[in-house]
């Protein structure tokens, strides 16, 4: 035992280096000959590797917060009763003219998780309202307590307090939504979506946050919006200011936030059903239609996706649009429920 300890003592730095993949060629050779010296040494290395691996898993597991997640799962389980609420809300639809309120329009695509919605959530969670839209359902103009309105796209959850308290108006979103926010410069309206916070420094906006997306996107129609992304832990918070026509993209993988001009005229098509295509490849058009109308479009021959379409559709049903595409490009179209299959005519 004594002897073993002595031998190991000399090797701990090197052992750690070797396991961490930091050893240079010489050191590797030294380690390998040490390993080959005895079965005991070999076992020691194995044990240390296993230990380091387990510690890695421990660090990984420490990032998950089971208490908050339990709350979320419990609300989800109770979603049946929430869905009853939601139909009451949607029954009281208020149609506002977009122009009247929409000083700002922004779209967010995110993998939002309630787990990350810390902070105000803790203080207000007891008086939270939750509205969940069904898979392919758009819930229009739900009134928020401050007189703002929100439209939810399919499969979307919004969490907001029964009364906004304090100096801000904060809501949480998972999925996609459009906000018409009542102006109140003294109390900024803040949306949390995944690891991103959107602060509206003025009047009205639209948020859409889809689980599963790799990025969070914010597009501003008019007005001014601040987007805060959570960066990699050692770095300070990152933020950008957006004005009309600008788009911020937050990459969840790289934790970077980029600002550029929005070049997608259809980013809010899911709500308005006004779609504009200017020399757009059908691949993009179909993706766009799938999102706007909550349908599935299967393209049998990938060549079809390369065809280019220029057209404008205002509030047309998806069958109409697909029929136009079918006639334009002489394609074959079949449909079953919400599943469309498109193919070349001759195949």
């Amino acid at each position: 035992m004594e002897k073993k300890n002595k031998k190991e003592k000399a090797n701990w730095d090197l052992l750690a280096k070797y396991i961490a993949g930091e050893a240079n060629e010489d050191e590797k050779t030294t380690m390998e000959s040490w390993i080959n010296e005895s079965e005991e040494n070999f076992q020691e290395l194995k044990e240390c590797q296993r230990l380091i691996e387990n510690i890695g898993l421990y660090y990984e597991s420490a990032r998950f917060d089971e208490t908050n997640a339990l709350k979320f799962v419990q609300t989800k389980i109770n979603a049946e009763s929430v869905k009853t609420n939601q139909s009451i809300h949607s029954g009281r639809k208020v149609y506002l003219s977009l122009i009247k309120y929409a000083a700002i329009v922004l779209v967010v695509i995110a993998t939002g998780f309630f787990t990350y919605w810390l902070g105000f959530r803790k203080t207000a969670s007891t008086d939270m309202n939750q509205i969940v839209s069904a898979d392919k359902e758009v819930l229009r103009e739900i009134a928020l307590p401050d007189g703002s309105f929100v439209t939810l796209n399919g499969n979307t959850t919004i969490l907001y307090p029964q009364q906004f308290q304090g100096k801000t108006r904060e809501v949480e979103i998972r999925g996609e939504a459009f906000f018409d926010v009542k102006p109140n410069p003294d109390r900024p309206f803040i949306i949390t979506a995944g690891k991103t916070k959107i602060t509206v420094l003025g009047t009205s906006f639209n948020v859409c946050a889809y689980p599963g997306a790799e990025t969070v996107e914010v597009v501003v129609e008019t007005g001014k919006v601040r987007v805060d992304g959570q960066s990699a832990s050692p770095n300070p918070k990152i933020e950008v200011l957006l004005t009309k026509g600008e788009k911020a993209t937050f990459s969840k993988k790289d934790k970077t936030l980029q600002k550029k001009t929005n070049d997608d005229p259809n980013y809010i098509g899911w709500k308005t059903q006004n779609l504009v295509y200017t020399k757009s490849p059908l691949g993009y058009v179909f993706e766009n239609l799938e999102k706007t109308y909550h349908v599935e479009i299967e393209v049998v021959d990938p060549e079809i996706k390369k065809l280019v379409l220029s057209a404008q559709f205002n509030n047309k049903p998806v069958d109409f649009i697909l029929d136009v595409i079918r006639l334009t490009f002489n394609l074959k179209l079949s449909v079953e429920n919400t599943h469309y299959v498109i193919n070349k005519r001759n195949s």
Binding site: E60, A62, F64, E66, A69, T111, G112, F113, G212
Partner: peptide, 20 residues
């Protein structure tokens, strides 16, 4: 919850997705 998330993370490599 934590163990299952950590386990899922080995596959999906995304914290949010693992939690989902």
């Amino acid at each position: 919850y934590k163990p299952l998330c950590t386990y899922a993370f080995q596959f999906v490599n995304e914290i949010e997705e693992a939690e989902e």
